[in-house]
Each structure stands twice: as structure tokens, then as C-alpha cells.
């Protein structure tokens, strides 16, 4: 009896640490299952990240140790120094690759989030000639495999004179279907009353879109920012960009990865580097989702 009491109290104490104060209708057993599931699957999921972080700081002999160890014992910066030396030898300066990737990723992400949201608002909150067809086409387009559209895609790019420019990656990214579909599904939830009353008060569609709709779907476009950033950050531009000085960072780093077993340490450093930037963007946008929405939600 007493034991059970201590147990219940320690669970409650731990729950208070991790759960917001105003949670309603929560039982101790439910909380216990919650904590257990989070810990168990969390460890499982975090594994690759822990692996990549540790490997990047392992000295050469530890990387090849058998049986392999997850955690680094004598951390070193050797892998990063090797990476910098390798990049210094390449005839295109590394800063050029970094610029290419940043340009493509930032312009592509900002453009996609804005254009997709602009297109999503009419489709989510209005019916007009063609709206139903457009809604359907967006969903259908998610279902067609990209391998077979690569060749027609290339023909279009070269007809438009876009091969060997940043725009070969950026323009298609502006119009990815996933973003529009995501934004549309969040905008559908906004009460039509909000929009109608703003319209009666004399607001234009542009004002409604920018001042009412976008702030209400902030969690959606912050999520889309993560997804788009991640995709473009990893884009190699393989089939469209042949000019070495225009190639993105992930292509250049891919060359290093292809350099054989002697470069395993450098590859580990590369993996960490390629992971860190999207993770930072992820953390920033996830915490802003939570800050803005903590006390509101969409009210009917």
C-alpha cells in the first residue's frame, strides 16, 4: 500500500517535470505508458543521430574497431581538419559551393512557401470555376513516379534554356505539390466566418491572405519550411547542372564520399556537417511553432 503510494507520487513528480500544468483528464497509468513509450522508441529513433555525431569525432583507429563501438572514447577534430585540407585542394573554392547551396536552398524555400501558400488560400476557402479540378490534380501529381518524368523534365529545362543555372533546381521546387497540399489542408480549418467578415469590412483577398490566413496557419508553413529546406539542402543538381562552379555543396561532398575507404573519417565529418544545418533550422522552426501556438489554437 505504502509502496504503491511512493510509486504513484514519483510518477506524478516526473510527469510534472515534462507535462504542462493545465493538462486535463490524465491518469497516472496513462502517464506511465506515455513516459515508457517515449523513452523506448526515442532511444531507437535517436540512434542514427548519435551514431553520426560520435563517428565524426572518432580517430581513425576507433572507426575500424571490431566489434564497432557506438560512443567515441578519444574524441578528436582530425576528421574535420582532413575535410578542410581536402576542400582547400579542390580548384573550386569551398565557399563557392556553400554559396551555391545557400542560394538555392534559401530562395527555393522562401519562394515555395510563399507561392504554395498563395495558391492554397483560394483552393482551401473558395469555390470557383476550376477549383475542384485543380485540387484533384495536386493530389494526383503526388502519385506519379519521378524516375520516368526525369527525361521529359530535362527536355523542358533545356528548351527553356535553364540547364546549368540555379533555376533548374529552384523553379520546379517553387511548385512542388506537397507544399500546396499541406498548406491547403491546414487552411481548410480556418472558419469561413473570419474570411467573410473581413471581406465585408472591405479587406481585399490579398490582405485576407497575408494578414488573416497566414498568421493562423503558422505551424503549417513553419513545417513546410523544414521540409523544403531539407530537400533543397540535399539536392545535388545532378541531371541539370554540369558547370562545376555552379554545383551545390552536397554534390562536392558526395565526391569526397566516393573517395574510398581511406576517407571514412572525412565521410563521417561530412555526414555530421550535412546534418547540422537542417537540424538547426528544424529546432528554430519547431520552437517557434510552439511559442506562437501555446495559448491559442484556431478558435471557431
Amino acid at each position: 500500500m505504502n509502496n504503491a503510494n511512493v510509486f504513484t507520487r514519483s510518477v506524478k513528480w516526473f510527469v510534472r517535470l515534462i507535462q504542462p500544468k493545465n493538462s486535463l483528464n490524465r491518469s497516472v497509468w496513462g502517464d506511465l505508458v506515455l513516459i515508457f513509450a517515449l523513452l523506448l522508441f526515442g532511444t531507437f529513433s535517436a540512434y542514427p543521430m548519435i551514431f553520426i555525431i560520435n563517428n565524426a569525432f572518432k580517430p581513425f583507429n576507433e572507426i575500424f574497431i571490431f566489434p564497432p563501438k557506438l560512443f567515441v572514447r578519444n574524441p578528436t577534430l582530425d576528421n574535420f581538419i582532413d575535410l578542410i585540407n581536402l576542400m582547400a585542394d579542390s580548384w573550386i573554392p569551398i565557399t563557392r559551393y556553400v554559396f551555391n547551396t545557400l542560394f538555392i536552398t534559401i530562395v527555393g524555400t522562401v519562394g515555395h512557401v510563399i507561392l504554395a501558400s498563395m495558391a492554397a488560400y483560394p483552393l482551401a476557402k473558395h469555390t470557383f470555376r476550376g477549383s475542384e479540378a485543380l485540387n484533384k490534380i495536386i493530389v494526383y501529381s503526388l502519385m506519379f513516379n519521378a524516375t520516368v518524368t526525369a527525361i521529359p523534365g530535362y527536355v523542358i529545362m533545356s528548351e527553356l534554356g535553364l540547364v546549368d543555372t540555379y533555376w533548374a533546381i529552384i523553379l520546379p521546387a517553387f511548385a512542388f505539390s506537397l507544399g500546396l497540399y499541406l498548406m491547403k489542408n491546414f487552411m481548410v480549418q480556418i472558419p469561413t466566418l473570419y474570411i467573410e467578415s473581413a471581406f465585408i469590412d472591405g479587406a481585399s483577398h490579398y490582405q485576407i491572405f497575408w494578414k488573416i490566413v497566414m498568421p493562423l496557419v503558422k505551424p503549417a508553413w513553419l513545417t513546410l519550411t523544414i521540409l523544403s529546406f531539407q530537400t533543397l539542402w540535399g539536392a545535388t543538381g545532378g541531371q541539370y547542372i554540369y558547370d562545376e562552379s555552379l554545383k551545390p555543396l552536397s554534390f562536392a561532398l558526395g565526391q569526397i564520399v566516393g573517395g574510398g575507404i581511406g576517407r571514412t573519417g572525412v565521410v563521417a565529418a561530412v555526414s555530421l556537417f550535412m546534418m547540422v544545418v537542417p537540424v538547426i533550422v528544424f529546432i528554430i522552426s519547431q520552437s517557434s511553432i510552439i511559442q506562437t501556438m501555446a495559448h491559442s489554437g484556431i478558435k471557431e
Binding site: 507561392l115 498563395m118 488560400y121 501529381s141 523553379l171 511548385a175 490579398y206
Partner: peptide, 25 residues
């Protein structure tokens, strides 16, 4: 509905050129 069509047009022009056209092909 003109403002609505205008809002959608930049996205859908690119979408038709870079997605619909290759899929139909």
C-alpha cells in the same frame, strides 16, 4: 474571382510546366 486567380497563377504556371507536362508526356 480575379484576385484569386492572380494569387494562384505563379504557382500553377510553374506547376504545369514542371510537373503536369512531364507526367502527361
Amino acid at each position: 474571382n480575379k484576385p484569386l486567380y492572380l494569387l494562384m497563377s505563379p504557382y500553377f504556371v510553374l506547376f504545369f510546366v514542371f510537373t503536369v507536362l512531364p507526367v502527361v508526356t
